[in-house]
Design a protein around this nucleic acid. Structure first.
Length: 418
DNA sequence: TCTGGGGTCCTAGGGCGA
DNA sequence: TCTGTCGCCCTAGGACCC
């Protein structure tokens, strides 16, 4: 059996843990740059605020309904997530952390236990230990545990936030209830195509032929179908090393000037290099892309990316040079650029780097990077920069409603006065 | 004026060597 | 030497997730 544990409205719940005065009040959390809504409390959902709502368009509604608006505080969410996950791992040796707010637990060899009861115990402990409310779905396969979780979340009063699909009768009932667009693994495009075929529920979906599903939705769709039929097909994912590291940003305004974009691209490359050194590897490929504002249809549109094969490196200096070189190839004058990014890939562990006679990397870089990382760690992140970066801090991200980093910064912990 | 960021996997199709 | 075919590898693009 599998259990899917999901934190309810996770980012909003994290904000609430340290602000109990916000219980039962509407909360939204905004994306980087305070652009759009990425998390909502139940009260905000009830007000009709959709996921991804642009903040500027919904400001009147926020004001009118006294919605509490927060900038995203990933230091806080990451730490809270870690607390929840480490508590969960006390309940099974097999845990797959699926995302910042979700985990699958494998409950093999737990037959002697009443699993529903076990789930309720877990929920109670997490609530008490972290203050984060969770929902738990238990079922014979991963996809079905997602379905069970949805039921637990949708009917908190009836289920107490924990639901288990025990037999075929319950499975069929659940699949008939679940709308096709809400099935895990069915996105917007597939949902549209399936509805046109009169497939409106998960139950309709499992009644399609395997052949149709395979040819229209690839092996991925077929695996999902088998899993929903109760035949375990999606297994635990082993923790894989990362395949890509990306730093991409939408600019606050629009940029036309090559030098401005170069400065941004350089900074993105440095961020990527820092993440790369944290996982002790080198990369042999770098992709740079730029694009205009696709929401402004009246403006000329442009999108271009370039992938460069490079000698393996983790040096901020080398990577930012390559990034600038790539940009010079794809940049075109006369466009209003809105977003850009750097993605690095083809990783090799540090020790496996081959010696190259024509190496352009100065061996002093290694020591220099170590020193930069060490200093940035001790004096605060990213205070030490390359000359080509945004030294004037012109590009500070808009975060007007940032909450304190209660759990990760000593200066921001809550002070209790007695 | 203002619309996120960071990932993964799969497939089709082209290049290329045997 | 020329041509067809097969399989492998790579890439771009599309789909999905949170």
């Amino acid at each position: 059996m599998f259990a899917l544990v999901d934190c309810n409205n996770f980012f909003a719940s994290c904000e609430r843990v340290f602000r109990p005065d916000l219980n039962n009040k509407p909360i939204v959390v905004l994306s980087n740059n305070d652009g759009c809504v990425i998390a909502r409390s139940n009260e905000s959902k009830a007000l009709g605020i959709p996921m991804g709502a642009p903040a500027f368009k919904y400001k009147p509604l926020f004001d009118k309904n006294k919605v509490h608006v927060f900038s995203s505080n990933f230091a806080l969410y990451g730490d809270m997530s870690h607390r929840v996950m480490s508590m969960l791992s006390e309940y099974t040796p097999d845990i797959e952390i699926y995302s910042i707010d979700e985990s699958f637990l494998k409950l093999e060899g737990f037959n002697h236990l009443d699993l529903l009861d076990y789930g309720r115990t877990i929920k109670k402990k997490i609530d008490k230990g972290t203050g984060i409310p969770i929902s738990i779905g238990i079922a014979p396969t991963k996809a079905l545990s997602k379905v069970a979780n949805r039921i637990a979340k949708k009917f908190p009063k009836e289920t107490g936030g924990v639901y288990m699909i025990k037999n075929d009768e319950q499975r069929i009932k659940a699949l008939k209830w679940l709308k096709i667009e809400d099935v895990w693994g069915i996105g917007r495009k597939h949902a549209k195509r399936l509805k046109a075929k009169k497939v409106n529920t998960a139950f309709d979906f499992i009644n399609l032929s395997d052949e149709w599903v395979k040819s229209n939705m690839s092996i991925v769709g077929l695996r999902l179908k088998k899993d929903l039929e109760g035949k375990p097909t999606l297994d635990f994912e082993k923790i894989q090393p990362k395949k890509n590291i990306a730093t991409t940003r939408t600019f606050e305004g629009m940029l036309k000037n090559y030098e401005d974009i170069k400065e941004r691209i350089t900074t993105f490359a440095v961020h990527c290099a820092e993440k790369l050194r944290k996982q002790n590897s080198h990369c042999a490929e770098i992709t740079i892309f730029i694009l205009t504002n696709r929401h402004r249809k009246e403006l000329k549109q442009y999108y271009k990316s370039i992938k460069l094969k490079i000698e393996p490196t983790s040096s901020s200096i080398i990577l930012s040079k390559h990034a600038a070189r790539g940009l010079s190839v794809i940049f075109r004058n006369g466009y209003n650029y809105k977003k850009a990014g750097v993605i690095i890939s083809k990783f090799t562990p540090e020790g496996e780097k081959q010696f190259n006679l024509f190496s352009e990397e100065n061996p002093k870089h290694i020591a220099l990077m170590q020193t930069i990382d060490k200093l940035n760690k001790s004096i605060g992140s990213n205070k030490l920069k390359l000359a080509s970066q945004d030294l004037g801090r012109k590009w500070k991200m808009k975060q007007e409603k940032l909450s304190p980093r209660y759990t990760t910064n000593l200066k921001e912990v809550i002070i209790v006065k007695i």
